[in-house]
């Protein structure tokens, strides 16, 4: 009796083990097969986004090569080093494209890229990745609505920090009823990115080679 119970248990465990190994192998194979293609399409997607927020008449340099590695920074919400792209016209800096993360979306992080003109105005903001509620919080995608274009041309105004909030909180940014947490997180993240830009503007445009590591010096 005892022996058969042990046998049955072992058999069940062995069975589970076999299925787990087969499943893991399948997953690992698919992952390694698709990883490069996925990374490539994500890169292409990112480049397409950059084209939307930094019009090509604002720069004549090779923007994809003129990058700057920015160390993790609390104002950008980043946890790993990110690449920023620098736009220059006739060797004069005209703008910067940075990645930022809004940590407090309704369902976790919202990954953004933000184009900031050299004078500190927003060129444009796009959402790269998010997990907000489909059909409710996803109006932050440029494909779903024009909401995100509300950031265009805005700048930090020291006299009116109040303005960098959604209308419900007394600010200037629209929101949609039923989904206020999402735009709140977005507005906060963009405002902080602008603060980061104004604090580090000089170091950010040091020609590549002598690249500044922004936040490590703070």
């Amino acid at each position: 009796m005892r022996r058969s119970l042990l046998n049955a248990t072992l058999q069940t465990a062995l069975n589970l083990l076999v299925f787990t190994i087969v499943g893991t192998t399948l997953l690992a194979t698919t992952y390694s097969q698709t990883r490069q293609t996925i990374a490539r399409s994500e890169q292409t997607e990112k480049l397409k986004l950059i084209g939307q927020i930094m019009p090509s008449n604002l720069y004549d340099n090779d923007i994809l090569k003129d990058t700057l590695s920015i160390a993790p920074d609390a104002l950008l919400g980043t946890a790993v080093a990110t690449n920023a792209y620098r736009a220059r016209l006739h060797d004069q800096p005209t703008g910067l494209i940075v990645e930022a993360i809004a940590p407090d979306g309704y369902s976790g992080k919202i990954n953004l890229i933000i184009a900031i003109h050299y004078d500190g105005t927003i060129g444009g903001v796009r959402v790269v990745e998010h997990k907000e509620t489909p059909g409710l919080g996803d109006y932050i995608e440029a494909a779903k609505s024009d909401w995100i274009k509300g950031f265009d041309g805005k700048a930090l105004d020291s006299s009116a920090t109040q303005a960098w909030q959604v209308k419900k909180d007394g600010g200037q940014f629209d929101y949609m009823a039923g989904a206020t947490i999402t735009p709140r997180a977005m507005v906060k993240a963009v405002r902080k990115a602008l603060e980061f830009f104004s604090e580090h503007r000089q170091e950010l445009f040091v020609p590549s080679g002598a690249a500044a590591k922004s936040s490590q010096e703070r």
């Binding site: 299925f19 787990t20 499943g23 399948l26 997953l27 698919t30 992952y31 097969q33 698709t34 293609t37 996925i38 399409s41």
Partner: peptide, 16 residues
């Protein structure tokens, strides 16, 4: 396990 593996494989394949 089977469902989860299938869904993840489909997700990865679709992403690629």
């Amino acid at each position: 396990l089977i469902i989860a593996v299938l869904v993840t494989v489909i997700q990865l394949a679709m992403n690629a």
